[in-house]
Amino acid sequence: MARQSISITEPNDKWLKAQVDSQEYSSKSELVNDLIRQARNQQRQIDWVRAKLEKAEKSGFTDATKEQILAQSKSDLNG
């Protein structure tokens, strides 16, 4: 595992410490890695939505209702 040295503002450090103190996480490193995983997952979802929007813009109009589009998008997201 790669080791990094980072600087964190005091408010952020206090928040990290509070999360560890509450035993939600065993260490600040575990918490930071979890936050990064969450951010990466969120970015994948954003990229997926962006790709869908770009594809839709290029393909033209649809006859599907907004409810049908939403249902299909949820189905695609959930696998």
Rank of each mutant, 00 (worst) to 15 (best):
Met1Cys: 10
Ala2Asp: 09
Ala2Trp: 05
Ala2Gly: 11
Ala2Thr: 05
Arg3Asp: 12
Gln4Arg: 01
Ser5Met: 09
Ser5Phe: 06
Ser5Cys: 12
Ile6Trp: 04
Ile6Pro: 00
Ser7Phe: 11
Ser7Glu: 08
Ser7His: 14
Ser7Val: 06
Ser7Gly: 12
Ser7Thr: 07
Ile8Cys: 06
Ile8Asp: 03
Thr9Trp: 06
Thr9Ala: 13
Thr9Gln: 08
Glu10His: 01
Pro11Glu: 11
Asn12Ala: 03
Asn12Phe: 06
Asn12Tyr: 10
Asp13Met: 07
Asp13Thr: 02
Lys14Leu: 13
Lys14Val: 13
Leu16His: 10
Lys17Tyr: 04
Lys17Ser: 04
Ala18Cys: 04
Ala18Gly: 08
Gln19Ser: 04
Gln19Met: 05
Gln19Trp: 00
Asp21Asn: 07
Gln23His: 08
Gln23Lys: 09
Gln23Leu: 02
Glu24Ile: 07
Glu24Trp: 02
Tyr25Pro: 00
Ser26Met: 02
Ser26Glu: 13
Ser29Pro: 02
Ser29Arg: 11
Glu30Arg: 15
Glu30Cys: 14
Leu31Trp: 02
Leu31Gly: 00
Leu31Gln: 05
Leu31His: 13
Val32Glu: 01
Val32Cys: 00
Asn33Glu: 14
Asn33Gly: 12
Asp34Lys: 05
Leu35Gln: 10
Leu35Ser: 09
Leu35Ile: 07
Ile36His: 01
Arg37Lys: 14
Arg37Cys: 04
Gln38Met: 03
Gln38Thr: 03
Ala39Tyr: 05
Ala39Ile: 10
Ala39Ser: 13
Ala39Trp: 13
Ala39Lys: 14
Ala39Val: 06
Arg40Lys: 15
Arg40Ile: 07
Asn41Ile: 15
Asn41Gln: 09
Gln42Asp: 07
Gln42Val: 06
Gln43Val: 10
Gln43Ala: 00
Gln45Ile: 08
Ile46Ala: 11
Ile46Lys: 11
Asp47Thr: 10
Asp47Ala: 10
Asp47Trp: 04
Trp48Phe: 12
Val49Thr: 04
Ala51Met: 08
Lys52Gly: 04
Leu53Trp: 06
Leu53Gly: 08
Glu54Val: 15
Glu54Cys: 14
Lys55Trp: 05
Lys55Met: 11
Ala56Gln: 07
Glu57Asp: 15
Glu57Leu: 13
Lys58Leu: 13
Lys58Tyr: 11
Ser59Val: 00
Gly60Met: 12
Phe61Gly: 11
Thr62Val: 06
Asp63Ile: 02
Asp63Met: 01
Ala64Pro: 03
Ala64Asn: 15
Lys66Leu: 09
Lys66Phe: 10
Lys66Asn: 10
Lys66Trp: 01
Glu67Trp: 03
Glu67Asn: 07
Gln68Ile: 00
Ile69Trp: 04
Ile69Gly: 00
Leu70Val: 04
Leu70Asn: 09
Leu70Gln: 12
Leu70Ala: 06
Ala71Glu: 07
Ala71Pro: 00
Ala71Asn: 08
Ser73Lys: 07
Lys74Tyr: 02
Lys74Asp: 02
Ser75His: 09
Asp76Val: 10
Asp76Lys: 14
Asp76Trp: 09
Asp76Arg: 14
Leu77His: 11
Leu77Arg: 15
Asn78Asp: 04
Asn78Met: 10
Asn78Pro: 03
Gly79Ala: 12
